[in-house]
């Protein structure tokens, strides 16, 4: 027997399942910034810190 979800939650899930209320995942521009700020710049900082010390 499936457990009934609260009506308010059920309403939200239905809206999300229809795709109307789903937010967008990272797009190309987001990935650019993520890679730049989370990988390339840290990598450059590490090299500078190691070789310039």
């Amino acid at each position: 027997m499936p457990e009934a979800l609260p009506a308010g939650l059920e309403e939200r899930l239905a809206a999300l399942e229809q795709g109307r209320e789903v937010g967008e995942d990272f797009d190309g521009r987001s990935w650019f910034w993520l890679i730049l700020l989370g990988a390339l710049i840290p990598g450059a900082l590490l090299l500078i810190g190691w070789w310039a010390a």
């Binding site: 993520l34 989370g38 990988a39 710049i41 840290p42 900082l45 590490l46 810190g49 310039a52 010390a53």
Partner: peptide, 20 residues
């Protein structure tokens, strides 16, 4: 100098992991 750069790099890498 080294501490600031190492910590900044580590922080940004950690932040990326959490966000992904």
């Amino acid at each position: 100098f080294q501490g600031s750069l190492a910590l900044t790099a580590g922080s940004m890498i950690g932040m990326l992991l959490v966000l992904l």
